Amino acid sequence: MSNPFTVSLISWHDGEPLLCAVREAVFMREQGVPEELEWDGQDEGCRHALALSLQGEAVGCGRLLPDGHIGRIAVLPEWRNRKVGTAIMEILLAEARARGLPQVAVDAQTQAVPFYHGFGFVERGDVFMDAGLPHIKMGLKL
């Protein structure tokens, strides 16, 4: 059976309203991340992954910074455990490889560490707080 969603790489310019909608729902409303921390001024220079339902609704997103940092992986609650996050990570990792990046990094929320382990990421350092949530740095050699 095919997935009930698609994932595409897009620019911030092309996807801003949809990307914002997912991130506001997940990070700001659900997790309580302050607006000034969520909008860090780096989105224009990133390559973004956007997951859309077959009806065209934004259901997940993520971004790859030029330095190989992957972040802002977000999936709407009703779409979790349906491989949306996996598809987002796969397309971002493929983009990083296509760019010839030697490695990628994430600042993982600690509850998401098993998700990143599934791609081969390993912890680097100790748990730290970011936006009031526990995180740990993780890396993956490509």
Rank of each mutant, 00 (worst) to 15 (best):
W12T: 03
G56M: 12
G56N: 12
G71A: 08
E57N: 13
L65M: 15
P114W: 07
L9C: 05
Q42T: 14
E57K: 09
G68N: 09
A94Q: 14
G120K: 07
L54Q: 13
E57W: 02
L50K: 05
V84S: 13
E78K: 07
E30G: 04
W39Y: 13
E95N: 06
A87S: 14
I10A: 01
I73D: 03
V7R: 04
G100P: 07
E36D: 12
C61H: 01
G45E: 13
L50I: 14
E123G: 11
D43W: 02
A49M: 08
R23N: 06
A108Y: 03
T110Y: 00
V26E: 05
G85K: 07
Q109V: 02
V22T: 04
A94H: 07
A49P: 00
Q109C: 02
A105K: 10
L54K: 08
C20W: 04
L54T: 13
V84H: 07
G100T: 06
K83C: 12
W79C: 11
V84A: 13
L18R: 15
S11M: 01
D40A: 07
A25L: 09
F119W: 06
R72D: 07
F115H: 08
D14F: 00
P17G: 10
P114M: 09
L93Q: 06
P34A: 15
D40V: 11
V104K: 02
E24K: 14
N81K: 08
M89H: 00
G71M: 07
A49K: 01
R124N: 15
C46R: 01
Q111P: 00
V26W: 05
A74P: 06
F115W: 07
S8E: 14
C61A: 15
I88W: 01
A58F: 02
P17W: 12
V127L: 05
G100Q: 09
L37C: 03
R80P: 14
S8I: 10
A25R: 09
L92M: 12
G62H: 11
E24S: 09
I91C: 11
D107W: 06
I10T: 15
Q31I: 11
L54S: 13
E78G: 13
L37N: 00
G41M: 01
G60E: 14
E30V: 08
I73S: 01
E95C: 13
R80E: 06
Q111K: 02
L19M: 07
G41W: 00
A58R: 01
I10V: 15
G125L: 11
G120W: 05
G68R: 05
V22H: 01
Y116N: 08
S11V: 01
A25G: 02
M129V: 12
L65K: 14
A87N: 10
P77E: 04
E123D: 05
V113N: 03
G125F: 09
F119P: 10
E38Q: 13
G71K: 08
Q55V: 06
R63V: 10
W39S: 09
L76T: 02
R29M: 07
F119Q: 09
A51V: 12
V122M: 08
P102S: 15
R23L: 12
I73F: 10
A25D: 11
V33R: 03
M89L: 15
S8Y: 01
